[in-house]
């Protein structure tokens, strides 16, 4: 970003959206560790005149448990400030009367408690990690291939993320596998979907050009935000290579 543009951006800035994993903390065994200085930085933003929201594609835990984890690390944030794909997916499923077959992490299943899951007519995949076995992926594939018009939702489309013991495959890889196998195009819920970013802007009541997105993922955070007319800033922590 050129300097003159950057000055203009700061002048009109009313809100900041922060990605979490790789920006605030690195995930891994025992929940992960805060990135140096980030707890204080969040505090400074909160004390400023800027609005602050958190936007994550985290789908390995319910939003409540996830927020509690960050609070234990020392971050000041509340559930209502955090936007994640699973609650967004639940509202889409209800709107369209869809009954999902879930291929998601065990700890996020309860987010879908209020959704009818009998006789599935779509598939929802999230970052299922160790649950991404051949059998589970094949079960999802058989649901899709058995539908007259297959519908696949993917909670994010990330390629990989960083854990303390190395880089791990993210949901996007399995989304691509199912797309290729069943000849469908997944609907992405979460970053970088424009609908997802718009819901965060609506919550702050500001225009895209008044918002800055900070993330470690060039495509999903920075690229997605810029597509919506927001400013994007990439940090050199987390998955940055």
């Amino acid at each position: 970003m050129a300097d003159h543009k950057w000055t203009g951006c700061v002048k009109s800035l009313k809100g900041v959206i922060l990605d979490m994993c790789g920006v605030l903390y690195d995930s891994g065994e025992g929940g992960g560790v805060p990135i140096s200085g980030s707890i204080e930085a969040v505090k400074r933003l909160k004390e400023s005149d800027l609005q602050l929201r958190f936007c994550t594609n985290e789908t390995q835990a319910t939003r409540e448990k996830f927020v509690a984890k960050l609070q234990r690390m020392g971050f000041e944030l509340s559930v209502s400030e955090v936007f994640s794909p699973a609650p967004a997916a639940v509202s889409i499923l209800k709107q369209r009367g869809l009954r999902p077959h879930l291929l998601v992490h065990d700890d996020v299943v309860s987010e879908f408690d209020s959704v009818d899951k009998t006789s599935p007519n779509c598939v929802v995949i999230g970052d299922a990690a160790d649950k991404f076995s051949y059998k589970n992926l094949n079960d999802a594939f058989q649901v899709l291939i058995g539908l007259e018009k297959p519908v696949l939702f993917s909670l994010g489309r990330g390629r990989y993320y960083k854990e303390t013991d190395g880089l791990k495959l993210d949901v996007g890889v399995y989304m691509k596998a199912l797309e290729y196998a069943s000849d469908v195009e997944a609907e992405v819920v979460g970053k970088p979907s424009a609908m997802f970013f718009q819901s965060v802007l609506d919550d702050m009541g500001i225009q895209p050009h008044e918002a800055l997105m900070i993330g470690d993922d060039l495509v999903n955070d920075v690229g997605g935000a810029q597509q919506c007319g927001m400013k994007g800033l990439q940090v050199r922590t987390g998955k940055y290579r």
């Binding site: 594939f141 291939i145 390629r159 495959l169 996007g172 890889v173 691509k176 596998a177 196998a181 000849d183």
Partner: peptide, 24 residues
């Protein structure tokens, strides 16, 4: 993409290759 098994269609190598291509 897939092959025929006694219990129905099953994923072939293609989806896994495609996933790894996307990841890397």
């Amino acid at each position: 993409r897939y092959y025929k098994r006694k219990d129905g269609l099953a994923l072939g190598p293609g989806p896994f290759v495609t996933g790894l291509e996307y990841a890397t």
